[in-house]
Design a protein around this nucleic acid. Structure first.
Lengths: 146, 146
DNA sequence: TTTTTAATAGATATTCAAGTCTATTGAAAA
DNA sequence: TTTTCAATAGACTTGAATATCTATTAAAAA
């Protein structure tokens, strides 16, 4: 079970941004180095974050990205859906169009458990939860590192 | 969150086989029709199941596949790993080589929850659980349908 | 023995996510 | 105003997963 590479990148980038304690924007370049995400690819992801209203961008010298709303208002689900990572509540591992509690496919019951736990996770985890977990990842964001 | 297409196919095919109540083998052709998996692609997946010892194959007229061991002995994890679907317990969403409870990446704590629930699911769910869930999927396996 | 059914093998094709490259636009600093 | 930094835009490339095709091998039935 995994996220797509892009979805993983999106979570990573947003996690890094929330860890930046001062109010200055993080440039794409710094963010790319801190997260290990290919810089041009990261740019595309960030563009989507801006369009989705999760992040604000600032062009030009000293510019970069910062969160557009409070960390606790940004759920993982919002981030994942922004990069087109569909968490389809009715998707069926068996490939059935109609698959629900009334008309379950052979794998419906067991698969539902797992799907529900992912749903819960993505809807309830926010960037605030990332900020609450102290560790030294912030040091990655030093603009003069590397 | 999703399985790879191949991993999904593997679960589907094995689920279908366990639902066959008589002791006759299921042919690749019937299985392909019942599951909607491209038949040649399914053949490759089944070959891996045979090599892994989960399934026994019988060539020639009247041949096909049947389980090589009791349904409760076949966990989802076994099936997934057979198609190279790695469930890496130490994988890190943040891409860190060393990421554990002592040296957690910013996403470690929240991600661990989810990973653990998947681990539990794949290790504890077996084909017996599929067999225990009554529904009319067995009818898909009628050799003369379609 | 011949025919038919079905697994096995492997080469080839297709598709899409992921990654790269080049150029443009916008804003701050000098 | 000029320079520099950095986001934006989009064309292009790559590679792995997925799918298809053709042929061969094995076993049962006729």
């Amino acid at each position: 079970m995994h996220l797509s590479q892009t979805a993983e990148y999106a979570l990573r980038a947003m996690a890094c941004i929330v860890l930046k304690k001062d109010n200055r924007p993080v440039s794409s370049k710094v963010l790319a180095r801190a997260t290990g995400i290919p810089s041009h690819y990261l740019s595309k992801i960030m563009r989507k974050m801006v369009e989705a209203g999760l992040v604000a961008s600032q062009k030009g010298h000293g510019g970069g990205f910062k969160l557009a709303k409070a960390p606790e208002k940004i759920t993982f689900k919002m981030i994942l859906e922004t990069v087109d990572y569909r968490i389809e509540p009715d998707s069926c591992v068996f490939g059935w169009d109609e698959c629900n509690n009334e008309e379950p496919c052979p794998l419906h019951n067991t698969w539902s458990h797992l799907k529900n736990s992912f749903q819960w996770w993505s809807e309830n985890m926010t960037l605030q939860d990332v900020a609450n977990n102290p560790n030294d990842a912030e040091s990655l964001l030093k603009p003069d590192a590397g």
